[in-house]
Design a protein around this nucleic acid. Structure first.
Lengths: 337, 337
DNA sequence: TTCTGGCACTCGTGACCATTGAGTGCCAGA
DNA sequence: TCTGGCACTCAATGGTCACGAGTGCCAGAA
């Protein structure tokens, strides 16, 4: 088992390494921290920590750096979440409060997170799975062409073209719209299919095909749009580490461009704050990065995730604090609108 | 004046440098190209080209590399636009044809351009300035709250909340919607203001305030949404040059994150194909990059721009060919839908 | 049992230096 | 006007060497 002091040594190593970006040796450690023991003792502790796999040497006769396992221990047992300062909190609130629509909220959140953590920020759009329908609109565009517009309670709007199998009168369409809305408005996406199931039957024979087509498109839209979109920002921050590993920046950028990868990355985690360190990330390109993510939402339920991607050598307490605070404020904003 | 052969030498230098990424010397030039003269002659020509400012040496006793001015001459007088191969063209068409909506078209275009040119791709969303209104929808959300939905002929949908000064009946709202649509559908954005100017007067006194508010919001949306959005992709390609100038990648990434900068970048150029080389770009961060952009649109008129950002040392003929081809196909897709 | 000081050892880093070779400018002659 | 020759420059390469931060180990003190 690791003694209290050895944990203290690990904490000191992580802190120093995060600060200086250089392997840290026993002597430097005793100078910068009040461990109350000599370098030689620290060396023994370091050897033990290395045996356990918490730290490693890049090469003989260099200082130690934390391993993924070391960071994991640090995050789990040694580090707290550093709360933001009052001015920072005020700044966040002000900045987010001036957002005008959903796109703007997400855009501002991304910029905010990137700036606050000086890392790459990823914000998922509020998910539609738990959303409800606010309104469905049907617009006749041409003789057998209808535009379907779906508006959700999170303020999102989705539209689809529908090519009808037969022409439909404006009256019938208005009728369909009215009945459709009376059934689905305020309902959750998941409930919509059975709610509209018997709708075609109540229409004239000639219109049934069209009604079915429209409904099919609606259901399709509900399903498709459940796969969430996201926004990323702050990629320029990656260049801060380019001198460390100019080689690893490429796969990271590539991974960040693959929305699928990012969605999986965020989706894997439960809605509480989670930290994935280095190789804990399934995607190979992100093996030298850590991901700090947390769910956010307008009510009790988390509707989406947001987080940051940075080097494993990051300021975990600060990053976690920023991520948590931003998630909280975004939730508030969404609840208000 | 520059003799024919000297231009030939410049062309050879540009081509070799783009290929090898290394300064090119007189001997290597005569070996790789059939110039029909000796290295010594080429050296004289190079000295002349250097005097004119078309090429430069990174340091004494190294080969020459083209300057911005040299690339400019190359693009203007020496290089054609390299057409894509038939398979490439087919691939483009197939890929773009499977797009399902506007977002998808733009997204696919970005990926396509990035992959084709192996550079950073920027695609502006079709502009609304020349767009026409396809439909305006008004949805009662609460007693004095209306959602305004604007649908354009380019397939874009914009929505806005309107807080009304006074409650309005559903009937009046339907009436407004009908009259509004009968006036503006099919009209250009720019024409809308005068078309709706006298609408409030035709309503009951109690509803006029609300009608005015709704109209004001509509006009606002038309104006606001004229400022275009854009999508970028292929930033991972920047890392291909990281060994050349690890220092310059940062400002480029930063510039790419500033939508305003990019919009200005594309906007500055006329709708034909334009190439901005190095310092010709107004934005400082892009001084070591070149931008190849072209307008695209569904009809005769260009409705937006697309292009790529890459190092000044890029394959101009190939890039220009790819950009032009993609713009053409995107235009077709937009015209169809 | 645990900590400490001392000591020999490792090895990356940076300075210094010589060598190499690609590339240049210039000039005399074809 | 072009060509071959020649001397010169200088970045890059690679080897040697001293330095020093850092380590592991061990004997002795607490």
């Amino acid at each position: 088992m690791l003694s209290e002091r050895r944990l203290e040594v690990l904490r000191a190593i992580v802190q120093d390494y995060v600060g200086t970006e250089e392997p840290v040796g026993s002597k430097a450690l005793t100078e910068r921290h009040r461990l109350g023991v000599s370098p030689a003792t620290v060396r023994n502790d370091m050897a033990a920590l290395e045996d356990e796999g918490f730290i490693a040497q890049p090469h003989t006769s260099a200082g130690r750096i934390p391993t993924d396992k070391g960071y994991r221990l640090f995050v789990d047992r040694l580090a707290g979440v550093k709360p933001l300062s009052a001015p920072e909190r005020r700044a966040i609130q002000n900045f987010l409060d001036s957002a005008v629509d959903l796109d703007d909220v997400v855009g501002r959140t991304v910029r905010l997170l990137a700036q606050l953590t000086r890392q790459v920020a990823v914000v998922q759009y509020p998910s539609l799975t738990r959303s409800t329908v606010r309104h469905v609109e049907l617009l006749p565009l041409a003789v057998a062409r209808v535009m379907l517009v779906l508006i959700t309670d999170t303020g999102r709007v989705e539209q689809r073209m529908v090519d009808c199998p037969a022409p439909i009168s404006d009256d019938s369409l208005a009728d369909l719209r009215a009945r459709l809305n009376s059934r689905v408005v305020g309902r959750r996406f998941a409930d919509v299919p059975q709610l509209v199931q018997d709708l075609p039957e109540s229409f004239e024979q000639e219109d049934r095909g069209t009604v079915s087509t429209v409904l099919a498109t609606l259901l399709e839209t509900l399903v498709e749009e459940t796969e969430e979109r996201l926004m990323i920002g702050g990629t320029a921050n990656l260049t801060r580490f380019v001198h460390d590993f100019p080689l690893t920046i490429r796969p990271v950028l590539e991974a960040l461009e693959e929305q699928v990868v990012l969605l999986k990355l965020l989706g894997e985690q439960d809605s509480g704050m989670t930290v994935r360190i280095g190789h804990e990330n399934a995607h190979e390109g992100l093996n030298s990065t850590s991901v700090v993510a947390v769910g956010y939402g307008s009510g009790d339920e988390a509707v989406a995730k947001l987080g940051v991607v940075g080097p494993t050598r990051m300021d975990y307490p600060g990053t976690m604090g920023a991520v948590r605070a931003v998630a909280r404020y975004v939730g508030q904003i969404l609840a208000e609108s």
